[in-house]
Write a protein that binds this DNA or RNA. Structure first.
Lengths: 252, 252
DNA sequence: GCAGTTTTTGCGTTATACGAGATTAAACGC
DNA sequence: GCGTTTAATCTCGTATAACGCAAAAACTGC
């Protein structure tokens, strides 16, 4: 028995729903039960409830998410004016910078992509969408997000998080990570070379928006495109312009 | 008491979560209770549970969605390869067509935006995002979606749905709507002029993808831009090319 | 066809959701 | 400012719905 203010059934239900992540999109009832550590009979009831509500659909003996789950996301995006305010600004600055722009927020100990504008002239994307989780410590957007938090929170996360080497360049030294985040806080921008995806450099700046959730504006490109130090500086300046406009628009 | 396979608590919990739509993003517990027709005490527990799970946050006496809700959407998008397959194709064709492209699926009696590529060179967007609900009967994408369904389903929806006049051009005659959908099914594309937003013309074609959910590719622009009949035909041809590529990629 | 697994059902137990009422906080008038 | 009204929030005993075991049924793969 736990807190009387928390509905354990609802918690289990959301656990089941969350279990359908991109690592396992199609699951049988027993797989759900295994993954969530919920009794098979209970898991079955919760899964059937989700089917009843239209969030899951059954095909054969497997269950998978339906597009309806996007409606919940749409509520958040709509409420925060992403369509009307954020997206047009991102589009314009994306064209000016010549690269796709992403906006991210901190979610637990992950960076969460909340908006994106990819260049229409290129097929290049990094395969992430709104709702994608990225590492906090080994991406520019993640470190910049941490730099916006209090340093006590940063130290807590750095010490708690398990470090995973995504590439040969991934920084696994917790002290160096802290330094990098402190530098980002001081400079007002963050650059990370190939620590998450090989050969890709990320740049992030705070969005400056005074909204409900701290957010950052981020750009990714192959490392060579920033060969000249001046190129990088130019991009940062343009990104800051984008951030300023987002802040001014009262979005986010 | 109802079906023993449906967890009524979980249903109520999801109802509460869904209640935070863009029409009411910030709600007190009693507002939630009122909107969902759930007892205030129960609503309170469910809301507190959502706060506990990090999907809602409390500010003052109001509750609102956190970005975490996007993670669930990300699972669906990731599982269906939206980032890696769909988005690049949309981006490329968006540039070729010279207009933003959307992909939509049918959700109950609404059209649901599941992917989008807006032109980066322009600030023009129609304010919708992934997860936005649009009318089925008064948009090109909606009618095209219906045209993919069986005609019995179409007739059911046309007769059940309540018709709302969004503009002075909105077709409110159920017979005419059926005709329009049948025409779309026959032609393989659908064009709707200013029935949802004044002065805006929408075009939709089936995505041809053999995936789990029927989907359409849609384009919107101010009506004048299609003045010449030839312009419209050209766009349709280009859209069909996009649809074919989506199908070929095994996305959707 | 058999041995395994998975899914479903029944049921006693117990936690848990319910909702009326108590408590607290906000809104208003004087 | 203070009492009064109104609404929102929280508490708690009780009814009930969810839990999870165990056993049956259904499906798989060999």
């Amino acid at each position: 028995m736990q807190n009387r203010d928390i509905s354990s059934t609802f918690v289990k239900g959301m656990t089941v729903l969350k279990a359908f992540d991109d690592s396992q999109a199609h699951m049988t009832i027993s797989e759900v039960a295994h993954k969530t550590h919920i009794d098979a009979a209970t898991a079955r009831r919760l899964v059937l409830t989700l089917v009843h509500l239209g969030y899951l659909k059954k095909v054969g003996r497997n269950f998978s998410l339906t597009p309806r789950i996007l409606v919940l996301a749409g509520s958040f995006l709509g409420a925060n004016q992403f369509g009307r305010l954020v997206q047009p600004i991102l589009n314009q600055h994306s064209a000016e910078i010549g690269r796709g722009i992403s906006v991210a927020m901190k979610d637990d100990n992950k960076a969460l992509l909340v908006a994106q504008s990819s260049l229409t002239s290129t097929r290049m994307t990094f395969g992430f969408t709104v709702g994608s989780h990225l590492p906090l410590l080994h991406t520019a957007m993640g470190r910049m997000l941490l730099a916006l938090e209090g340093m006590d929170e940063v130290e807590r996360i750095i010490s708690e998080i398990s470090l995973e080497a995504h590439t040969s360049l991934t920084t696994l030294d917790r002290g160096k990570l802290l330094e990098s985040i402190q530098l980002a806080a001081k400079l007002g921008y963050c650059v990370v070379h190939g620590e998450f995806e090989h050969g890709v450099t990320g740049i992030a700046v705070p969005s400056d928006a005074s909204g409900e959730f701290p957010s950052v504006v981020a750009v990714s490109d192959v490392t060579e495109s920033y060969e000249a130090e001046a190129d990088l500086k130019t991009v940062v300046v343009k990104m800051k312009r984008c951030a300023a406009e987002l802040a001014q628009s009262n979005a986010l």
